[in-house]
Design a protein around this nucleic acid. Structure first.
Lengths: 229, 229
DNA sequence: ATATAGTGTGTAATTTTTACACTAAGTAAT
DNA sequence: ATTACTTAGTGTAAAAATTACACACTATAT
């Protein structure tokens, strides 16, 4: 095992699994690598933790550098550090996930020097990933599955105003199963974190649905408490 | 911020929160440091990850070196890496927890070169801890609180044969609240992971309780499924 | 024999979860 | 303006899970 990486006995990095929702599909952000190893492979965006950054700060910076986004709910979920996971040396990486609403207002501007390009790819049909990134992704998906059952993180994926059907759609995509419309609404409303607006959906060629907004105050009270789906 | 630690730009370590149960109290294993910084303070046992170890292997090794125990259920739960958390340089640490039955058969033999001594201290009345170890402990307790509600990890704290009252006691200690005896039994039995033995408790000066054993096969089936307390 | 201390058990009321189908409203095409 | 189309929005009954609650039993010690 050569030591090609710049002067390191070990390197500590952060990799991000960015889940994005465009109103239809669940996607993750991948970059196409421009360097060996795994040149031309798709990989999770990640980077080395800076000397004076906290881990969360570092994750935020990396997210920002890769997407131009700030203020995203983001959380570390697992450290991967098998000695053989990086062919060039010992790299321990801490995985973070983030949930992002795609499209609409702000354009993402992924900038990365070590990548040919960055793209949102549907999780339905992911390519082979570099390193152990498939494992990292799998664990991330598992994590948000668990998390979405207990905390209302689904809102992070939706625009500020959304319909109940859209919300349900997000749940179904993440949990990987159909939910009953009436029961879903009953339950989600019972949490009391939704605010019904006087506004209706626009631009649809059928009956427009009522828009809702997520009530952050009540959410804050609920946070920590266990809810379940 | 000086760089006193041996040739490192950054160090990656593992710290363990070892929860022990002696039949009465919940305790954690702490060491009394024999070196600066925080000489004479109590701290979580931990160590540097070795070059050719996976993280889990490293955690197991560290646990073994500190307690002589092997084969303990152990899980990483959070990485702590604030730049200022270690006064001598950048140390990123990955926290693991383990659950251990105390007393009884095998004596623990904590060996540590950098510690004056190691001791199981009741969590009721912990001393001030070195570094950010209080934070690490807090998060660990929070983690097992959450975990015990969804997975039967409580068994790890009990001897092979135990009474339902002891089991309930563990739940009460971790969750920090009283549970109803009849309801508790109804529920725990309904999971189907307990095997009632033909044996009774011995050496008590009152009616002896029936002993149970934890059924690992059924547990394996249950694992992954959500149960809740 | 009696006091003591913890074991072990059932039921009714309430709450939560599940399964399930039709009418209402708006748009688009004619 | 009628019709066809598409999704929105709503209730109820049955089943399951949760909660609250109290007393008789059994082994031991004196």
């Amino acid at each position: 095992m050569e030591q090609i990486l710049p002067h390191l006995d070990s390197v500590f990095s952060i990799d991000c699994v960015l889940f994005g929702f465009d109103g239809k599909e669940l996607k993750i952000l991948l970059i196409e690598r421009n360097e060996e190893p795994f040149k031309d492979w798709w990989a999770l965006p990640g980077n080395i933790v800076g000397a004076d950054e906290s881990l969360d700060q570092s994750a935020s910076r990396i997210l920002y550098e890769l997407t131009g986004l700030r203020g995203i709910y983001m959380e570390q979920y697992y450290a991967f550090g098998d000695p053989g996971r990086h062919p060039q040396g010992r790299v321990i990486t801490l995985a973070y996930y983030a949930l992002i609403r795609l499209g609409g207002d702000k354009e993402l501007r992924p900038i990365s020097t070590y990548a040919k390009r960055a793209n949102w790819l549907p999780i339905k049909d992911l390519p082979k990933l570099a390193f152990d990134h498939q494992k990292i992704y799998d664990k991330g998906l598992e994590k948000i599955k668990r998390r979405i059952k207990h905390q209302p993180i689904a809102f992070e994926l939706l625009p500020e105003k959304f319909t109940l059907t859209q919300l349900q759609h997000v749940y179904e995509l993440i949990l990987g199963k159909k939910l009953d419309k009436r029961n879903f609404r009953k339950k989600i409303v019972s949490f009391g974190v939704l605010k019904e607006l006087d506004e209706k959906q626009k631009g649809v060629s059928y009956r427009a649905a009522t828009l809702y907004r997520f009530d952050k105050r009540r959410y804050a009270k609920l946070f920590g408490k266990e809810i379940s789906f």
